[in-house]
Design a protein around this nucleic acid. Structure first.
Lengths: 193, 193
DNA sequence: AAAAAGCATTGACTTGAATCAATGCTTTTG
DNA sequence: CAAAAGCATTGATTCAAGTCAATGCTTTTT
């Protein structure tokens, strides 16, 4: 039920059986059907979600009601509107399930208590956010400095599992492109080699 | 000499005089003249730099030798090629001074030792990286979801002090635009209201 | 103090992505 | 299982940003 969560935890910070049991008391488990929302824009984000199984996306909706995917969350990844979670402000992102999914949730009070009382949890949290920061910086660098072709190829190389499971128009959205443009770029890439 | 560093530290995690003195033994101080490099692409990034005074930029250079600014570092901010610092891989960014600057540096071994032996330092680190993550996420969201006009206005609203101190073509670079385009956008904004 | 370098602006033109529209295919749903 | 919804592709056109080039101004450098 929390296998993957603790596997990932132990890869970063080694836990004893007892510590693991203790952390379990702070976690809740949630199943989500495809298309169900974990979070809707405007609500306060009450959890950080760890994806045990399935796939989710976080996205914002602009004035012309176009969706912009800011993040995918597949097995082993964490997904949340962190700003809303930390500040208690209304969320600016929506999060919903792309497939039937199973999540490990941690509430704000649980998160805060673990941070204060369990150094290993703080270390785990620090390493997670550091990884997320580095991943996002890579993405930003490639948006600012590379051609769309390169960016798409980098994306495929880096996240082949996402490319396989997620419809192409969502990858376009993640890249800040229209579906038509991405389709043409794929064509250009495949004919030019 | 380290006033601002400890001011920021204390805003996040309260330190005793003794703790402060202990941390000081791990820090070094460095002055940089305008245009001097703190880090060059290809070298390994040996420090995290905290800006006590002055202004720096981190940027990458693409195939056509165009510069892309990934981050500014003004007083009170931290600047580094974090990926290179953490992994020991060659840096992909350059960092140089936009003005004569004064920096508080922490080396990797100092950083690691403090993380292991001083919980407050780990908390400080976690809060810093969390703040950096949230700032970058906001930037990414606005790149993906907003028009260039909006993005420029948001930038000015959020970082008025940067806009005042940094040449306009660097703001264009930070936004992923050419200087000409930014100039035209400013004109459009000023005439349309 | 003069020369050089750096910077912002403007104009003319080109290029790349968005938009609008249509088609065929596949997956979901009632 | 039939209808509907979702999806990828292609074509024609529009529009926004990039490129190239020139000018005038300001700041640095010598």
């Amino acid at each position: 039920m929390h296998e993957l969560y603790f596997q990932k935890f132990n890869e970063k910070v080694r836990l004893t059986e007892t510590e693991q049991e203790r952390i379990k008391t702070y976690l809740t488990y949630k199943k989500l059907r495809r298309k169900q929302y974990l979070l809707q824009e405007g609500d306060v984000c009450k959890f950080i979600a760890f994806v045990e199984k399935g796939a989710l996306r976080a996205y914002s909706v602009d004035d012309s009601s176009a969706e912009h995917i800011i993040q995918f969350g597949l097995e082993g990844w964490t997904i949340s509107d962190l700003y809303s979670f930390l500040t208690g402000e209304p969320a600016t992102y929506n999060i919903d399930a792309l497939e039937d999914s199973e999540l490990v949730l941690i509430s704000k009070s649980a998160h805060e208590e673990l941070l204060l009382t369990m150094p290993k949890y703080e270390t785990f949290t620090r390493l997670n956010i550091t990884g997320a920061y580095l991943a996002m910086q890579r993405r930003l660098t490639s948006i600012i400095g590379s051609s769309v072709e390169e960016r798409y190829q980098d994306f495929i190389a880096l996240y082949p599992h996402i490319a396989q499971r997620v419809p192409q128009h969502m990858i376009a959205s993640y890249m800040g492109l229209t579906p038509e443009t991405l389709s043409r770029i794929r064509k250009r890439i495949s004919t030019n080699k």
